[in-house]
Simulated assay, not measured.
Amino acid sequence: MTGARASVYEAVLARRSYSKVTEEAPTTAEVERLLEAAATAADHAGLAPWRVIELRGRARERLGDALALAAANAGADADAAASQRSKPLRAELLLAVVVSYRESHKVERWEQEVAAAGVAHLLTLLLDDAGWGAMWRSGPHTRTPEVAAAHGLGADEALLGWIYVGGIPSGARRERHATVDLAERHTVLAAD
């Protein structure tokens, strides 16, 4: 294993989600630098079927209003709908990950969603490596018309969720993820 590969391996093992972050956040220039690297994610036919939308300040409040409206329109009671309003305020920066479907006779829509998700996952790794706390969140209202309108999504776009980004609180634990039972998750197809 080369040094570069060991570094990626260690970064993947070290990555953690932070449900609570401080008010610090990377600048737009920092986000763009990380996105440039995240854009190297696997992408069949090089369609780049994704985009990332930054939400800061009042934009997060408008998202909260859209989430509350979506919850109310889905039949939630007033308290449940109101609780949606504060969710985007958990971090100073939200990065909305959007799949932007492209016409293709080779690459199906599900594969374009996977490409966009790959960019999002690499972005969380890069944010972690740069010293930022991040957590990819979604929820029952992620793909509602109210939330799509709040993001200005086009007719051929869908929201995959948001990466909440901020500083890592002092004293936050960097525990290892629970290991998976590879006997249940990894098999080898017989050659016969």
Rank of each mutant, 00 (worst) to 15 (best):
A68Q: 11
R109Q: 05
E111T: 13
S83A: 11
L126D: 11
N73V: 05
L63T: 04
L89N: 10
A130Y: 08
A78K: 15
A120H: 04
K87F: 07
R109M: 02
S83L: 03
L127C: 12
A91S: 15
P88C: 04
L125E: 01
A78S: 14
A82P: 00
A76V: 01
R143T: 09
K87V: 09
P145D: 12
A158E: 12
G152W: 10
G118D: 05
S83T: 11
D79C: 07
L126R: 09
A71D: 05
L95N: 11
R109S: 07
H151Q: 02
T142F: 03
H105I: 13
E92P: 15
S100N: 14
P140G: 13
L89T: 09
Q84D: 00
S100H: 14
H151S: 00
W132D: 03
A155M: 01
A130V: 10
G154I: 06
A155K: 07
L67K: 07
A68N: 06
G152P: 06
E157T: 13
A59W: 07
Q84N: 06
S138G: 15
L126W: 07
R102K: 15
A72I: 00
A71K: 06
T144H: 05
L95A: 10
E108G: 11
A134R: 05
L125D: 03
L126M: 04
D65V: 11
G133W: 02
D79M: 09
L94H: 13
L127M: 10
A148T: 07
A116T: 12
R90P: 11
V119Y: 03
A72N: 00
L122H: 11
A120I: 10
G154H: 05
E103L: 11
A148Q: 12
L153K: 12
R109P: 03
R60P: 04
R62K: 10
S83K: 15
S83W: 02
S83H: 10
G64L: 02
R90Y: 03
H151W: 01
A68I: 03
R85G: 05
V107P: 06
E113A: 13
P145M: 14
W110I: 13
L122M: 14
V97I: 15
R143K: 06
D129C: 01
A70H: 01
Y101S: 07
D79N: 09
K106D: 05
S138M: 10
G139Y: 01
E103C: 06
A150K: 07
